[in-house]
């Protein structure tokens, strides 16, 4: 337990007070971020702290979209989610694909199903939906 706390403290230290690290009762950690901070934080977590990108998930909150990037530090047993909020109209966020090739596909999935645009994503083709899928029709958005 003590090691986990030290590990989280070292992350806190690197970013000062700009970030809110909250602990939920279930033993997971969250950092709430702004769009501009995403790439810097992700590259720190990957390169300095040895986190593994698990996946990302988007939720339609009706007034906004929420994206969670899930990272796992397997050796330390810490699960950390980065929480970002995006506005409902033409939501967009910087792509992580050049930092993390494994984000290529989950970003394509989120673009197709949720309609979130990833700035700088190299592949504009559909991964899951047919190529002739109607434009602007995002199946996982709430009506």
């Amino acid at each position: 337990m003590k090691e986990k706390k030290l590990f989280i403290d070292s992350i806190k230290k690197s970013f000062g007070r700009n970030f809110l690290i909250e602990k939920e009762s279930s033993g997971r950690w969250y950092i709430s971020l702004k769009k501009g901070q995403l790439r810097e934080v992700v590259s720190f977590l990957l390169k300095e702290k040895g986190f593994r990108f698990s996946t990302a998930s988007a939720v339609d909150l009706l007034h906004a979209f929420e994206i969670l990037y899930h990272f796992s530090a397997d050796r330390e047993g810490i699960f950390l989610s980065l929480r970002l909020s995006l506005k409902r109209e033409r939501p967009s966020i910087p792509s992580l694909s050049n930092l993390l090739p494994c984000a290529l596909f989950i970003e394509r999935e989120m673009r197709e199903l949720m309609g979130i645009f990833f700035e700088g994503h190299p592949d504009k083709k559909n991964l899951l939906l047919p190529d002739d899928w109607p434009k602007g029709n995002y199946p996982l958005r709430k009506p």
Binding site: T55, S57, V59, D60, L68, H70, P101, L104, I106
Partner: peptide, 26 residues
């Protein structure tokens, strides 16, 4: 990996499923 979000009702608001092959195939 499964992520569920609840608003306190009897259904999930969002249920994200990430199967292992999604990471392994690439």
């Amino acid at each position: 990996f499964h992520y569920v979000k609840s608003d306190g009702s009897n259904q999930p608001v969002r249920h994200k499923i990430r199967a292992p092959s999604f990471m392994n195939v690439p």
